[in-house]
């Protein structure tokens, strides 16, 4: 049990300057966790749609407040970021796009794609129109 552990250790994160690669990587995780909270809210809304109309309208009312609209905007961006970067992950899983230049190209492409898709979505419905 008390054998010294000679396996490699992760270095301390603080010694690194943040870079596009590392920031996009941790953002995939952060957006995934944030979206998971959204999945629960969505489940609650569907439940309330069938079994509790007043609750459904209450939640919808919350989305109509400034904070609610802000949350919807954030969720929209988090989704399109996770979506675009998730597709980038799937290409990596097929072994494609690993060279350093390509990692940077796809990284900027993910940012551009997330921004464009978010703008289109928010512009289309004047905010996701769940509160309307």
């Amino acid at each position: 049990m008390s054998q010294p552990n000679t396996r490699p250790l992760s270095p301390h994160l603080q010694v690194y300057r943040p870079q596009l690669t590392s920031v996009l990587s941790i953002s995939h995780r952060a957006s995934g966790v944030f979206l998971s909270a959204g999945a629960l809210v969505l489940s609650l809304l569907i439940y309330a749609l069938a079994f509790d109309a007043p609750l459904y309208e209450t939640v919808r009312g919350l989305f109509n407040t400034t904070i609610g609209q802000g949350a919807l905007c954030l969720w929209t961006f988090a989704f399109f970021y996770h979506f675009s970067n998730g597709i980038r992950h799937l290409f990596w899983d097929m072994g494609k796009g690993f060279s350093l230049p390509n990692v940077y190209i796809s990284g900027y492409a993910v940012l551009a794609s997330a921004l464009v898709l978010t703008t289109i979505t928010l512009g289309y419905g004047h905010y996701v129109n769940i509160g309307q």
Binding site: Y56, E57, T121, V128, N129, I130
Partner: peptide
């Protein structure tokens, strides 16, 4: 669907 539905009223 969420952005294009005319209303999401109950």
């Amino acid at each position: 669907t969420l952005v294009t539905l005319p209303s999401l009223e109950h």
